[in-house]
Amino acid sequence: MSGYFIVFFCFLLIQRIGELRLAKKNADWMRQRGGYEVGANHYKYIVAIHVGFFLTLAVEVLVWNAVAPSWWLLPLILFFLTQLLRYWCIQSLGPYWNTRIYILPEATLIKKGPYRLVKHPNYWIVITEIALVPLIFGAYYTAFVWSLINFCFLKAVRIPTEEKALLLLKSEGP
């Protein structure tokens, strides 16, 4: 199972690196148009949460020899469904999607795709992923600890910061 884990782990890392590159491109696009970042002081904690998650996952699976449950296929299927939702979020926001919080003056709040159905869908997807990925490999400690840490940080810091920033946008968008 460790071979499958390494392939899956590398897939996740490549995916995240690609998303960070897209976020940088989108940030550059917004800054060129007068956009600015909000909440930059807490971004290091988001990075720390994700790095901690990946490191703990690798240790639990490769060092502590976590054993995949007999029902591993269920969280794997759910994970791939969340990926479809993730890319729906990215596509819906287009150049406004980012891992950071950017405000573009005079922009309007986007209310299409999953954003017309629920607030902050990408955060719900990340919460789900942080729970699902470890469950595929039986890494229950990682699933519990990092799901709790991530949820609490999003609820206490990230979402309130983004909500305040979104108040600066016009209320109707495409």
Rank of each mutant, 00 (worst) to 15 (best):
18 G>C: 10
73 L>A: 13
52 G>C: 13
32 Q>G: 14
63 V>W: 15
27 A>T: 08
55 L>F: 15
24 K>A: 15
44 K>A: 14
36 Y>S: 00
24 K>N: 15
64 W>K: 11
10 C>I: 13
26 N>I: 03
61 V>T: 06
26 N>F: 09
54 F>I: 12
60 E>T: 06
15 Q>E: 14
66 A>Y: 01
15 Q>M: 01
45 Y>E: 06
75 P>W: 00
20 L>P: 07
41 N>A: 15
47 V>N: 08
44 K>D: 04
23 A>Y: 02
14 I>R: 03
34 G>C: 11
48 A>L: 14
57 L>E: 03
52 G>P: 06
37 E>H: 06
49 I>A: 10
14 I>Y: 12
78 L>F: 01
41 N>R: 15
74 L>Q: 03
13 L>W: 08
25 K>A: 10
82 T>M: 05
43 Y>I: 03
10 C>N: 04
70 S>R: 14
55 L>I: 12
74 L>W: 09
74 L>P: 00
31 R>Y: 11
75 P>D: 04
61 V>F: 02
77 I>F: 00
56 T>P: 07
79 F>K: 01
72 W>A: 03
81 L>C: 09
40 A>N: 09
11 F>V: 08
17 I>N: 08
12 L>K: 01
29 W>D: 09
79 F>C: 06
34 G>K: 09
16 R>P: 04
48 A>W: 14
34 G>A: 10
15 Q>G: 03
25 K>V: 13
50 H>D: 01
51 V>G: 03
59 V>W: 13
38 V>G: 01
35 G>W: 03
48 A>P: 11
28 D>M: 06
17 I>D: 04
42 H>F: 05
16 R>V: 10
32 Q>N: 15
49 I>M: 06
73 L>M: 14
51 V>C: 05
46 I>M: 10
13 L>S: 06
67 V>G: 10
24 K>Y: 14
48 A>S: 15
24 K>V: 11
69 P>S: 08
56 T>E: 05
18 G>M: 10
63 V>P: 07
73 L>H: 02
32 Q>D: 15
32 Q>K: 15
68 A>C: 12
22 L>D: 05
46 I>A: 13
12 L>H: 02
11 F>K: 00
52 G>H: 07
21 R>I: 15
66 A>W: 03
58 A>C: 13
18 G>W: 10
35 G>V: 03
20 L>F: 14
63 V>G: 11
19 E>A: 12
13 L>N: 11
63 V>L: 12
20 L>A: 12
11 F>H: 02
38 V>D: 01
55 L>T: 13
68 A>I: 05
51 V>R: 04
63 V>A: 12
73 L>K: 07
42 H>N: 05
17 I>R: 11
11 F>C: 06
